[in-house]
């Protein structure tokens, strides 16, 4: 049984005169018990897909199933078996940590005690603050509380919409460790993120751009598909370097990437490149070979 199945889902939002296609003929499926990542920049259509799958939004075309339940016909069943954590913090800020968790437990007809083992890991960190109002928690704590609330009714599938956006690096790392532990408990997790470094932590990922899925595979397979040598180029004047690299005849692509520029070439010609850079006035330019990351793959796919 597939945990999630989408077939030819289309969703357009009508603006005043034009319309925006947020999800453009998307099909994919998620296996039970895996962490599936939707990776893409803002506006790629990740949230729309989440809202369609959690029965909050109706798709214009296509059909989708969550554990064999149709999102339109069986929306009631779906709401019982999924946990959803929206991208925006959406708990009651004026209720305490404990009251929030208790409220969401009770409206699912369960109690904190009944499913405590599931949230224990996360909730233990929150327990010292359990009488604090949710609005007064730090960003990472808020996300942990939101995850606890989404988990408290023991859902079979978790939908996490950008759970780590705006969260500090340490909390982000912790958050992903929690997700891995949840996976071991047999919960399927569908997570979206704009952070490419988090993609490696998923079992499979879908790279999305402008409502379309560019590729779906394991992170390793996607990196292997890159198929070209990638170079990190650095020199003293980086802006000039970018322009120079882009005007080099054998350059395939070149992007600014942190301290370096990431470069792919049409053919192997590093010595020729070195000469070219020297001639363009870059005296201390360094060229290093690099393992491509997900982001490089994303950039490459985007260009196609």
């Amino acid at each position: 049984m597939k945990a999630v199945e989408l077939k030819n889902i289309v969703k357009t939002y009508a603006l005043k005169k034009s319309s925006v296609t947020a999800v453009d003929d998307v099909s994919f499926s998620v296996e039970e018990g895996e962490i599936f990542g939707l990776i893409g920049p803002d506006g790629a259509g990740k949230t729309s897909i989440f809202r369609i799958l959690t029965t909050l939004l109706l798709a214009d075309k296509g059909n989708a199933k969550v554990l064999c339940n149709d999102v339109v016909k069986d929306w009631k069943t779906i709401r019982d078996i999924v946990g959803y954590m929206p991208g925006r913090f959406s708990l009651y800020q004026d209720l305490t940590v404990e009251e929030n968790l208790d409220f969401f437990a009770t409206i699912f007809n369960t109690t904190i005690q009944e499913n405590y083992d599931l949230v224990a890991d996360i909730y233990k960190q929150l327990e010292p603050f359990k009488t604090r109002r949710a609005g007064k928690l730090s960003g990472g704590m808020k996300q942990k509380l939101a995850l606890s609330c989404a988990l408290i009714h023991k859902p079979k599938i978790l939908f996490l919409d950008e759970p780590t956006t705006g969260v500090d690096p340490v909390s982000r790392k912790e958050f992903w460790e929690i997700l891995k532990r949840l996976k071991k408990q047999g919960i399927t997790i569908l997570v979206s993120t704009p952070y490419m470094d988090e993609a490696k932590l998923c079992d499979r990922i879908a790279l999305m751009q402008k409502g379309k899925i560019m590729t779906i595979d394991t992170p390793e397979a996607i990196v292997n598909q890159f198929g070209k040598n990638l170079y990190a180029v650095h020199s003293e004047s980086m802006f000039k370097l970018l322009n120079d690299l882009r005007s080099f005849t054998k350059t395939e692509s070149c992007f600014a990437f942190g301290e370096n520029h990431h470069l792919t070439l049409k053919e192997e010609c590093t010595t020729e490149l070195e000469k070219y850079l020297l001639a363009s006035g870059h005296n201390n330019a360094t060229i290093k070979k690099l393992e491509p990351g997900i982001e490089d793959c994303f950039m490459q796919l985007m260009k196609k």
Partner: peptide, 13 residues
Amino acid sequence: EAGTIEQLNVTPI
């Protein structure tokens, strides 16, 4: 405004 209505809508309420 707080988005809590969204969170309530995915519950069986």
